[in-house]
Amino acid sequence: MELEWFVYLSLILFSIGILGVLTQKTAIRILFSVELILNSANINFVAFNSYLQSTTSGTVIDQYMGWVFAMVVIALAAAEAAVGLAIFISLYRNFREIVVANIYELAESEEDE
């Protein structure tokens, strides 16, 4: 069981997440995909942390920095989920759906052309 394995696993999970972000139609599923990306990052952090623990002898903070970053990512995900929920509800209230492809307020209006 080598470090590479973890990184490749993380890579695959990351790619799945990206694919999800690109292909999913509803905002909530896009958010799920983002969670996948975050988790892949966490795998990386933890794996490298463990690898460095076994090969180097740093200070306590050096040895556990990967954990700490993983914690930060989890906290970020939590915050993101909270904000996301609020955004979805707001979107839903305005559009009665959360299909992002149907929400293109950013595009120029047709009349301008």
């Binding site: 509803t26 905002a27 909530i28 958010l31 799920f32 969670e35 988790n39 966490n42 914690m71 989890i74 995900a77 939590a78 989920a81 909270a82 996301g84 929920l85 979805f88 509800i89 979107l91 839903y92 759906e97 959360i98």
Partner: peptide, 23 residues
């Protein structure tokens, strides 16, 4: 942490979001 916060808290939050918004 992952199981309790992520698997428990955040996922439940996301479930909520899905329930509240999906047709």
């Amino acid at each position: 942490i992952q199981v309790s916060v992520y698997g428990g808290g955040i996922a439940v939050l996301l479930l909520f979001a899905g329930r509240l918004t999906s047709n």
